[in-house]
Write a protein that binds this DNA or RNA. Sequence first.
DNA 1: TACCTTTCTGAAAAGCTTTTCAGGAGTCTT
DNA 2: AAGACTCCTGAAAAGCTTTTCAGAAAGGTA
Lengths: 342, 342
Amino acid sequence: MRVTIRDVAREAGVSISTVSRVLNDTCFVEEAKRRRVKDAAERLSYSAHPAARSLLKQETGGVGVIVPSVSGEYFSEFLTGIDHFTQESGFYMLISSSHRSTAEFETALNTMYRRVDGLIIMAPDQGGFDATHRVLRSMPVVYVNRPFESSLSDSIGFNNFEGFYNITSHLVDMGHRRIAMITGPATAIDAQERLRGYRQALRDGGIEPESSLEVVGNFTRQSGYQAVSTILGSRKRPTAIAAANDLSAMGAISALHEAGVRIPDQMAITGFDDDPSARYSTPPLSTVRVRPREMGRLAIQYLVGRIRKVADAEGRKIELPFEIVLRASSLGSRREGASRTS
Amino acid sequence: MRVTIRDVAREAGVSISTVSRVLNDTCFVEEAKRRRVKDAAERLSYSAHPAARSLLKQETGGVGVIVPSVSGEYFSEFLTGIDHFTQESGFYMLISSSHRSTAEFETALNTMYRRVDGLIIMAPDQGGFDATHRVLRSMPVVYVNRPFESSLSDSIGFNNFEGFYNITSHLVDMGHRRIAMITGPATAIDAQERLRGYRQALRDGGIEPESSLEVVGNFTRQSGYQAVSTILGSRKRPTAIAAANDLSAMGAISALHEAGVRIPDQMAITGFDDDPSARYSTPPLSTVRVRPREMGRLAIQYLVGRIRKVADAEGRKIELPFEIVLRASSLGSRREGASRTS
DNA sequence: TACCTTTCTGAAAAGCTTTTCAGGAGTCTT
DNA sequence: AAGACTCCTGAAAAGCTTTTCAGAAAGGTA
């Protein structure tokens, strides 16, 4: 049933070493034998057992990806970026997601141990995992969206603070004085940064942040939807909402429609991420474009570079540019594409 | 650097067999030694090399998932369903996606060979791959959305024809006589079935399908968006659109808004899938709920059952129920939740 | 006390490959 | 023609674990 290199060797009438050499094209082998081996391998549809090979070569051909979630456009896009390059370069992809606790996160890390040659970690909500974990030291790691000081690993991300500062400033520039925010989960570092950007933008616009206008969300549509009732019920109704991400902005938009609030006339709204759907919402959503797909591509490129040892030993820390994308949801008239880059 | 079972054995002053026994809890070992081994393993932070183990045991602890794409809510949801159970049951997940050709698809299959203990395959667009491929015969397989006659594998899906028949019938019931369809890619089996359902529903409603009303799309927002200009430009403008999936429906909705067409008064529209976003679109989208997350969960449960040999040898073929979810996009008044089940 | 069980432990094999090492055959040089 | 190469090939080791097998020790019975 199971066909091994021995079977091929017997079939071709050569030793297993020769089979290995032919199949891996590692030495010159007499043409006649070469043919016989190829034929035999083909006939038996042989391929080397990955476990045996990786046991010996101490490499697997896989990369591990750790993300908070596999659902939501932001993550999908990120994964898509990784996936493309992964296939091109012949690596396979091992994904682990949704770790509610640090313990679960470290379990995931352990699962990756020796099963992959490198790791991409996006874990904005894992505050305190052990940065010296043995798995982390055993292979190259690229951190995404999680500034991390280590000369052994690369780190790529964008400036959440600045991005959110800019989109909030846009609302201020449009003349809004009462601007609510639908925040992300307090545990996530990127959510914290965005909140900080929001507050700073208000202050710089001469507006004192009010905690009653900071409605807690968790990056989901539903939380955005629910936040709206709080916002509409507030003592002095704001005229604009800055949502911590596009998903929650969409939820909010839906709720605003249901409440009969016109966008952007009665309520302007902005998001963050520029999910593919942002352009198709009603009205199209002003947001901050951060190109998760690009991030994914970059992350895997760096990682593969490190795995193949072509990268600098020095850890790189890349900050990707973002782009403010203004659409109808925050503009008086319906126009599209005005943009400002970081 | 690399710590093996030998190191633990030396450290604890026992043989490697004993270490293995203690760590796998496979035999009774004298308590004192047991302690020593545990301590040593802990101290050296040892864990068995997965390759060595799987080479010997002929099992890996992984499951492979092959999907057309990793982006889009439908697939995200599906993966999420798998992911949850995967973690619970201690398996890891290897994902391969976006195979443009049969060759690429079979490459993916080969990559999975011996790296996982079972396979979940969702490939509605892979018409003619080799169903007797050696990888497919080497481990349990669960096919999703792809009726497949094999007593060795389970198969899970829903009735695309009926689902689309029903949602189209709803439009007919609402009094529409000219109903356009935005189709999926002609190569995908599920898209074909939905188109068939559309036509049948029209005929059963006494309406002769017109090919000019069947606008080709490809399941993306963009294709839905573009389809609208064709539809609006047609000689006799239809009063309703049945989109092959939610994504293309969303694109269409966006285009309709831009064109100033009121939904549902001037144009009703329906989707398919009930993506999480469908409920949040403007107006909320009538659609067919197929619960991809449930499908994922079921698929992985079946698969793990087969891997652990508790499942019937007999191949099961499950057809999951769908549910017609009517929302404002196809109803005169804004009401929600009326539903009809398959 | 001698023999038979039972219980625990170590040695060794098996799982499959890649790669090093060494040897044999053939070719070239002087 | 002999020695020195080169070229190709096979044997064997290494990579790390689990599990079988067998042996030693201990305990029980006749």
